[in-house]
Design a protein around this nucleic acid. Structure first.
Length: 377
RNA sequence: GUGGGUAUGGCGCAGUUGGCUAGCGCGCCAGAUUGUGGCUCUGGAGGCCGUGGGUUCGAGUCCCACUAUCCACC
């Protein structure tokens, strides 16, 4: 059940009810691919920094420890001790990101495991079965994410196949949810729109997938090499063709600025590896832009990462100390940085929700972008 | 004390029978990174080749002395 509480232009402030609790949108989902937020961050930490939804990956968990193992242990929620919503990505993106290790066919994709090299086959049915075993709150459809450089005919063929795959996903999900030994019989399914930067292909695809009446719709295949202008244009073209009574999810995006632009164009869900990956590599987000703690100028800087930030890291430690930890490759350094970055993202989403509720999102966005462009010291 | 080895950017090393603006790894400095392979990639700074002399058109490369350091022996 998706309920809109306020709107401002295309921007929406809504509540999305799930079997694992309500998701307040717009929301940023914290990425924990292998059922772990990289950087020694626990699910207890996630609660402290305001995470609503955790995101894990079908392909990675299938390879290790195995979805049947997780099912026998009671599902992903119990396994990682997280009682809030979990969204599992379908493995479709790995068709793109592990492109040197796979072959795409009509029935599905043959992978070579990145861990031990063994052969793995994943098609729509397999992806749904794995996600059902993981018992995540929201399962993503198994799709192909074509390269932003792919030519028109390749993209058209790929998108047509993704539509056929989606129908198989839906049928398999319905079948699995009806089985007696399925852990989460209310598992939801989101479809994924593709079409690279070809607006007309995107729109036709959006029309085709919305006929299936799924629980939500994602826009995939963006932020994979195209320009920001192209990404925003595609959003403006496609979002109007997605149902307004369902959540819209922009996959893999993005920077704080990307998120503000996405919210303005009607997106409810976001996820991105930036706060975690950049945190591990000393890139920290602040209201005044990104800082690189590896820079020598922070060697004796006793200020917190961000003045006024209420995250566990900024309440306690200095830039100088964290820089030292990172330089010494101490795990604590990564952990403190990832905590700060995730807190930053989650807090920004909270501010965005408040701004839309009070119909001042446009002003909030302009102010936020202006501040970030000023640069931090 | 004797014999032998080694001295090249912060550290560890390459530098062919002497020949163009002396390289490499790590580190350092800076930048990239968008449904995560704890990565990866891209730039940059930094060396009068231990010191002094010699041979030569030309020496990091050859010769002599000195200094430092390592190993073995007394």
């Amino acid at each position: 059940m998706y309920q809109i509480k306020a709107t401002e232009g295309m921007a929406k402030r809504a509540c999305f009810e799930t079997p694992h609790g309500v998701i307040e949108t717009p929301v940023f989902m914290n990425v924990g691919t292998v059922a772990a937020i990289k950087g020694a961050v626990s699910t207890l930490d996630l609660k402290e920094i305001g995470c609503q939804v955790e995101l894990s990956n079908t392909y990675h968990l299938h390879v290790r420890p195995g979805d049947t193992v997780i099912k026998s242990l009671g599902g992903l929620h119990r396994f990682m001790v997280w009682d809030r919503p979990i969204l599992t990505d379908s493995g479709g993106f790995q068709v793109f990101s592990l492109s040197s290790l796979r072959k795409i066919k009509e029935e599905g994709v043959h992978f070579q495991s990145h861990v031990d090299g063994r052969k793995i086959f994943m098609g729509p049915e397999e992806s749904m079965q794995i996600q059902s075993n993981l018992a995540s709150t929201i399962a993503m459809a198994f799709d192909e994410c074509p390269s932003s450089k792919a030519d028109r005919s390749y993209v058209q063929n790929s998108v047509d196949r993704t539509t056929r795959w989606l129908k198989r996903c839906k049928a398999e999900m319905d079948r699995l949810n009806a089985l007696p030994d399925t852990i989460n019989k209310e598992q939801m399914l989101f479809g994924i729109n593709q079409g690279a930067v070809y607006d007309d292909i995107r729109i036709e695809h959006a029309k085709a997938i919305t006929e299936l009446d799924l629980d939500g719709y994602a826009i995939g295949g963006l932020a994979v090499g195209e320009t920001h202008a192209e990404m925003y244009r595609v959003l403006e073209s496609v979002v109007p063709y997605l149902p307004k009574e369902k959540p819209t999810y922009l996959m893999g995006v993005g920077t704080p600025a990307n998120i503000l632009e996405g919210v303005e164009r009607g997106v409810d869900f976001f996820d991105c590896v930036y706060p975690t990956r950049n945190g591990r590599h000393a890139h920290l987000y602040t209201a005044h832009g990104k800082i690189n703690l590896f820079n020598a100028k922070y060697e004796q800087d006793m200020r917190p990462i961000e003045e006024g930030c209420n995250c566990p890291t900024c309440r306690t430690y200095s830039r100088a100390y964290i820089r030292h930890l990172l330089k010494a490759k101490e795990m604590l350094g990564m952990r403190l940085c990832v905590l700060h970055n995730l807190y930053f993202y989650n807090r920004m989403m909270e501010e965005i929700r408040g701004a839309i509720e009070e119909h001042r999102f446009a002003a909030y966005k302009a102010e936020k972008l202006y501040q970030m462009e000023q640069g931090a010291d």
